[in-house]
Computed example of a mutant assay.
Amino acid sequence: MEKLEPILKTLRRELEDGRYAHLAHFPSEYELSERFGVNKKTANKAVSLLVAGGLLVRGTRGQGTRVVSGLLFHREQIAFIGELTSPYYANVFHGIQNAAMSRRYLVTYLSPSGRIADVLKMLSHSPVKGIVTHAYGRLETAGIPVVYIDHELQAGEQDLHMISCNNYQGGYEIMREVIARGHRDIVIYFHPALMRERLTGFYRAMSEAGIEDCEERTFYSMEHSDFDAKSALKRIQRKYPHFTALATGSDNDLLRMAKAMSGAGIVWSGRKALTGFGNVTGIGDTLPVATVDQHPFRIGCRAAEILIDMMENGEPEQPVRDMLDVEILYPHHIPVLR
């Protein structure tokens, strides 16, 4: 048995990795015994167990043993636990699926409305052996690796595996584009639930330009709604009636604010700069605004790759922290002040 187990592990991995094509001849027991330095009885036992596991089928009348699947998919699966209500996370999920399928893993999507602990308990008795998640906080799993997307670390969470875009870079660079075009009377519309590093990037660029009252120029939204955007715009107009640029923390908030400004009779196109974050559905193709492309598809792909590596090779000693670069799109839509 001591010799059998490592042989089985190696052969299963080769079959699941697609080394042998469907219906291809599998090495004979003589070839296996020579390769692994064991007797034919041990090699025969290994083949018999692979046949019992549905990976091989024995031929008749000397036809040898053939591969019956090279498994189209691994028996183990990945779960994505999160919300798909926004185009951003729909693209993240698409990336997860793409990377997982390329390595022959199926992905289960879950968006629990009840106790997350109950869901995790169910998953512990399922084929799911790895999880990618966002929006549910830290998950207490029993030995199942988890990769967190767009998660802001809390106290005691230094052991989490995480991936996100460089939110600070995005906030800093898009604000610099605004400032470079002569804008100084700048206001910010930001939801507290968003990644705060975006706001930190805004503030750094403004501070470098000599704009020190950044916090006073920040108007927080309490909910993602048209009503909230209208209310915030009224507060902005009272305090900064001549503002020339409005930066938001997400494209969804940008859309709501653009609607509120148009509804208030403010002619902003070509006169006031509006910026977002996310590049939701190619927003700059339909509105004269600048935005930050977070490349959610790439984030999803990378999250799945990190997770599968851990599922196959074990979790690393140090937590994985991956941060992908962002891209500023449509800066030419920012009006230049003379």
Rank of each mutant, 00 (worst) to 15 (best):
L84D: 06
L84F: 11
T85I: 12
S86F: 08
P87G: 07
Y88D: 04
Y88S: 02
Y89W: 11
A90I: 14
A90C: 14
N91Q: 15
N91E: 15
N91L: 14
V92T: 09
V92E: 12
F93P: 06
H94E: 13
I96E: 07
I96G: 01
Q97F: 06
Q97V: 10
N98Q: 14
N98W: 13
N98G: 01
A99P: 03
A100S: 14
M101I: 08
M101E: 15
M101K: 08
S102I: 05
R103C: 03
R103A: 09
Y105C: 01
Y105P: 01
L106P: 00
L106S: 04
V107W: 05
V107P: 03
T108M: 15
S111W: 05
S111P: 01
P112M: 06
S113N: 13
G114P: 03
R115D: 13
R115W: 00
R115P: 02
I116F: 06
A117M: 03
A117G: 03
A117E: 14
A117I: 00
D118T: 11
D118P: 01
V119Q: 11
L120Q: 01
K121R: 14
M122N: 11
M122S: 14
M122H: 12
L123I: 10
L123A: 07
S124Q: 14
S124A: 15
H125F: 11
S126A: 10
S126K: 07
S126E: 12
V128H: 05
G130R: 02
I131M: 04
I131Q: 01
V132Y: 05
V132L: 10
V132F: 06
T133K: 06
A135S: 13
A135Q: 09
R138C: 04
R138W: 05
R138M: 10
R138Y: 02
L139I: 02
L139H: 06
E140N: 08
E140P: 00
T141N: 04
T141Y: 00
A142F: 09
A142D: 15
G143N: 12
G143W: 14
I144F: 02
I144G: 05
P145C: 09
P145L: 12
P145W: 10
P145M: 10
P145K: 03
V146C: 11
V147P: 02
V147K: 02
Y148V: 05
Y148S: 02
I149Y: 05
I149T: 07
D150H: 07
D150Q: 06
E152A: 07
E152G: 00
E152V: 11
L153P: 01
Q154E: 14
Q154H: 09
Q154I: 01
Q154A: 10
A155E: 15
A155R: 10
A155I: 13
G156N: 07
G156E: 09
E157A: 01
E157G: 00
